[in-house]
């Protein structure tokens, strides 16, 4: 509708670039290696049985979810300090990708808990604080996606994002105390770190690499998408005004 002018299209037609193509290729290859080692070549665990294979996704997902939260807080701080839109978009991309990985962490954790503990959910310190992390992230995203001007959304979201990591730490601490004052330390403690060796360790390592690459790829794409969204919104305003004007003209012609 807009770009009907036959100008030479110099910009890219999607959010990908050479960097993301290389990153995406490496991510796919490492995911393939992860499937090979995680599902086929590595042996079942002595205590957890086959369920240990869930950990090869679960643990790296949890790690990159926290990484995304750090991006959000750092981005928010720099935005508030320097008014840099670049960092604001990094914060937004970090939060959304972190939300995705938090959901994956929770679901895989529950699917691991059912065969290992016999239930999908226990009020374990780590599980509870991960659930709280998801709620905190949803709060940030709710503010960031407010139907309001960019300035308003960005600034308010940045205040929430600035407090994201401190909140996560406090929630983590309080939930730790809440559980450990009343019962033994977390059930997970005797889960993974008990005896891990050889192919299992390599599978987990591959999991970290693959999930980190996917995380990086998603962050870059989401960041560019966020940039496009803001451009379209500011463009869209001009367009809407033009359309309204055209409508008004048509209305005058009609009987």
């Amino acid at each position: 509708m807009i770009s009907q002018t036959p100008t030479e299209v110099t910009g890219p037609t999607s959010t990908s670039s050479r960097v993301t193509r290389v990153l995406g290729f490496l991510a796919l290859v490492s995911l393939g290696v992860l499937v090979l080692f995680g599902l086929i070549l590595s042996p079942p665990d002595a205590s957890q049985g086959e369920a240990v294979r869930i950990m090869y996704i679960h643990v790296p997902s949890a790690t990159v979810a926290y990484l995304g939260c750090f991006l959000t807080t750092i981005g928010s701080i720099v935005y508030l300090w320097r008014k840099s839109q670049w960092w604001e978009l990094v914060a937004y991309a970090g939060a959304e990708v972190a939300t995705l990985f938090t959901v994956i962490t929770l679901v895989t954790g529950m699917l691991w808990g059912r065969p290992t503990w016999g239930v999908y959910w226990v009020w374990d310190a780590r599980l509870t604080s991960t659930a709280m992390l998801l709620l905190l992230l949803l709060g940030y995203l709710a503010v960031r996606r407010l139907p309001a001007d960019y300035e308003v959304r960005a600034k308010r979201a940045a205040i929430v994002g600035l407090l994201l990591v401190p909140n996560v730490m406090i929630v983590r601490k309080s939930v730790d105390w809440w559980r450990t004052l009343h019962q033994k330390p977390t059930l997970l403690a005797n889960g993974l770190d008990s005896k891990i060796e050889g192919l299992m360790l390599f599978s987990l390592f591959t999991g970290f690499i693959a999930i980190s690459l996917v995380f990086g790829w998603l962050i870059v794409h989401r960041f560019r998408l966020a940039w496009l969204e803001e451009q379209v919104e500011s463009e869209g305003l001009d367009l809407a005004i033009a359309e309204r004007r055209a409508e008004a003209l048509v209305g005058e012609v009609a009987p």
């Binding site: 709620l135 503010v143 929630v171 309080s174 939930v175 105390w177």
Partner: peptide
């Protein structure tokens, strides 16, 4: 919006 933002943050205070 306020309950969604505030209540998770106040969970440690509740505990």
């Amino acid at each position: 919006l306020l309950p969604l933002l505030l209540l998770p943050v106040l969970a440690p205070v509740l505990i």
